[in-house]
Design a protein around this nucleic acid. Structure first.
Lengths: 336, 336
DNA sequence: CTGAAAGCGCTTACAG
DNA sequence: CTGAAAGCGCTTACAG
């Protein structure tokens, strides 16, 4: 029902090959012919069928990008950064909403194979054997974003340098004069990296490590609130002389603040509080939260760049990338 | 490089047609043949090429869904609702991130045409002539979500019944004893509907309409905060005896609360405040905001259902749908 | 229950 | 500068 390349060809008395050539921007075409073809395209309202093109060319210019949880604005900003760079290079992003399910990821990879995506940016919560095998089998260039694959997998990644970021945050708190600094642990892989940095810092500086981990998910606000709340409660019980708390995410920090509020303690007067990830609303005056910021868009962009380098054969095995972080100082932390 | 249907056919000594039939779940196939084919598929690690399938079948089972702003969790929840229903019916969603740009929408529609999407769920901020024309031309079934197209366009939509929702919120505030209720206007199409309902309510009840509109965008928190802040300021200046404020979104309500806080006024003691949209963080104890809730996932689901009805020819011109809202009562509003 | 053939709408060597 | 032909990897009447 819709016009094809042959219709256009017939309409202006050239061959389909010629129409295809002007469509693809070949330069060795007489201006006159090109003009006739463009006119016909206009007249017939011809739009090339991309499914046909994808089949005959051997690429689709489609990149799959997984989003762990579409409702979480954190990942979305990440995605937006990747999308921008990819579109500038003529690729389309195909989003896969994982809803934090590993099955969904596997079926997304299957789909990627069926649709012959040119590349993949993935953010798996866990690197299972099954996942690694599937990745092998589908023969699609892949880059990991914000999740670190096992060394042996050969999958390159882009992540923040969480270790160094935590060191910087701890140094900042130390420099304010705090020596009794507690840490609320995020129960994920990234959380472990952060906890390790925290403990290393404490050891090096000879101060007591007081990290508390509550095994409740911390990705949704209400759960994170509960998690941070209970962690703060335990910190006050176990280490009553604590003067500063570094929570591994802003969400956890907010949960901690809820507890402090109920306990009648004031932030920052009675307790300095810092978080991480720079969630938008934590800049509101009620929180005014000091936080470790991760530059989300930049990460997405970097992952996309790395993937393009592989796809377009500029690199086969790019170096992993650890992006820097920065501390946003606000009012929730003050001198001891 | 990757196995094709012919490879599979050759491998087990049948024709490509037969392999295709078992792939597509035809039942008139001998069990023995089917078993051989499945075995071969396994052996050769064959995955059907979807671009080829899309070309020969006349559909793609791809649905385009636009997201006005990927960083806004509001829309994302909408999308998640639609995605669920669509996937259950064997369709894949192709997301388009519009970043609130009408050009991006136009180019997404162009892409939809090229990729031969089977259907489209769109959320345009404005219904321009150009948009309507493009929609006509691409010949793809379309449903509007949370935006109301002009009657004449023939595009069906799913939206909330904002008018009725506002009436209910105003009734709720009235029933608390408030008669001096101000309204902070959202500067968008939806905002106009809400303002109209507000004014109608005031007229019917014979109370003074005190709606304030600041022409600053209100979709991002920092802008909305500024908008609500200034609106609240003006309300106190122009109508100092106001006892309750209904802001057209939670973001605006938060902005208003920032001003009240600075002005030394306490919520809800000195001023009752209500919002709309039920943003996650407004349930925190610092805000504890009463709000008009919109049931986001349900809207997405309903739009997807409507689209499927059209695509699968159960309906050609479905009725527009106005979904109900509900009021979530929290601590920010009290008896006068 | 199965196969041969034509077709979906493009692209791309190959020739001229 | 342009055309005829083959091919991309499937699906689907048509026949038997």
């Amino acid at each position: 029902m819709s016009a094809t390349i042959r219709d256009v060809a017939k309409f202006c008395g050239v061959s389909a090959s010629t129409v295809s050539r002007v469509l693809n921007g070949y330069t060795d075409i007489s201006e006159e012919t090109a003009a006739r073809v463009y006119a016909a395209i206009e007249k017939l309202d011809f739009v090339p069928n991309n499914t046909a093109r994808m089949l005959s060319k051997k690429n689709t210019r489609l990149i799959g990008l997984t989003i762990p949880d579409i409702k979480d604005p954190f990942f979305s900003e990440n995605a937006a950064g990747a999308e921008k760079l990819l579109q500038e290079n003529g690729y389309q992003i195909f989003y896969g909403n994982m809803e934090r399910s590993s099955e969904k990821l596997l079926s997304f990879l299957q789909q990627a194979r069926q649709m012959r995506f040119d590349g993949l940016i993935i953010t798996p919560d866990e690197w299972t054997e099954e996942l690694l095998n599937t990745l092998q089998r589908i023969h699609i260039p892949v880059v990991a974003l914000r999740r670190r694959p096992p060394q042996s997998s050969g999958v390159p990644f882009v992540d923040n340098d969480h270790y160094r970021g935590v060191m910087e945050m701890m140094t900042y708190l130390s420099d304010l004069g705090h020596t009794k600094i507690a840490h609320i642990v995020l129960p994920t892989g990234i959380g472990e990296i952060r906890r390790e940095a925290y403990r290393d810092y404490c050891r090096i500086r000879g101060i007591e490590a007081r990290d508390v981990k509550i095994d409740l998910p911390a990705n949704k606000l209400d759960q994170a609130r509960e998690n941070g709340y209970r962690a703060m409660q335990r910190i006050l019980a176990d280490y009553p002389d604590t003067t500063a708390v570094f929570a591994a995410t802003d969400q956890l920090a907010i949960g901690a603040m809820v507890y402090l509020r109920e306990a009648g303690l004031s932030v920052p007067r009675d307790m300095s509080v810092a978080g991480a990830n720079d969630m938008e609303y934590t800049s509101l005056p009620w929180f005014d939260l000091t936080t470790l910021s991760l530059n989300r868009a930049e990460m997405g962009r970097a992952a996309a760049q790395m993937l393009l380098d592989i796809i377009e054969n500029r690199q086969t095995h790019p170096e992993n990338l650890l992006l820097g972080t920065s501390i946003i100082v606000r009012g929730s932390t003050i001198k001891k």
